[in-house]
Simulated assay, not measured.
Amino acid sequence: MDLSTMQDIGGCRAVLNTQDEVQRVVDRFCANSLDRNRRADKIRDYVARPQASGPRHIHTRYHGRRVEMQLRTRDQDSWAKIVENLTSRI
C-alpha cells in the first residue's frame, strides 16, 4: 500500500463511560492544542453530526498529522463493533 494514499498512518481510541466524559476530554484536548499551536486542532463531531455510514464518535487529527484519535462511549463502541462485524461478513 502506498502511504500517500492512506487516510491515517496511526491512531488510538479511548472508550469512556459517558458522553460528558468524552466532551471533557475533547475540551481539554482543544485547550492543550490551542496552547501548543496557537490554534485548536480540527474536531469532527460524528455524534452531533452523524455520518450515514459510520460510527458515532469524536474524531480528530493530532498536530494536523494523519493520526486518528477516536473518543467514544461504551455504547458507541459496542454499536461500532456490531456494525463492523456485520459488514465484514458481506
Rank of each mutant, 00 (worst) to 15 (best):
D35Y: 05
V15P: 05
D2A: 03
V15D: 01
H63E: 15
W79E: 13
Q7W: 07
A40T: 14
D2P: 09
T87C: 00
L16S: 04
V47P: 01
K42P: 01
C30G: 02
R38Y: 06
V26P: 01
R49T: 14
T60N: 08
I82Q: 09
A48D: 08
M69W: 07
T18L: 09
R89H: 14
Q19E: 11
A80S: 04
T87M: 09
G64T: 08
L86H: 08
V22A: 15
I9S: 07
D45H: 04
R38W: 05
A80M: 07
T73M: 00
Y62N: 11
I43S: 00
R65K: 14
T18N: 04
S53H: 15
S78W: 00
K42W: 08
R39A: 02
V15I: 14
P55H: 11
L3Y: 14
R61A: 06
R61H: 07
R39F: 11
I58G: 05
I82W: 12
I9L: 09
V25R: 02
S78E: 01
H59F: 10
P55K: 00
V22D: 00
S53W: 14
V22W: 01
H63K: 13
N85G: 12
V47G: 02
P55D: 08
R49I: 09
N37F: 12
R89Q: 15
D8G: 03
T87A: 13
I90Q: 15
C12M: 07
R89P: 02
C30L: 15
L86N: 12
L16M: 13
C30Q: 14
H57N: 13
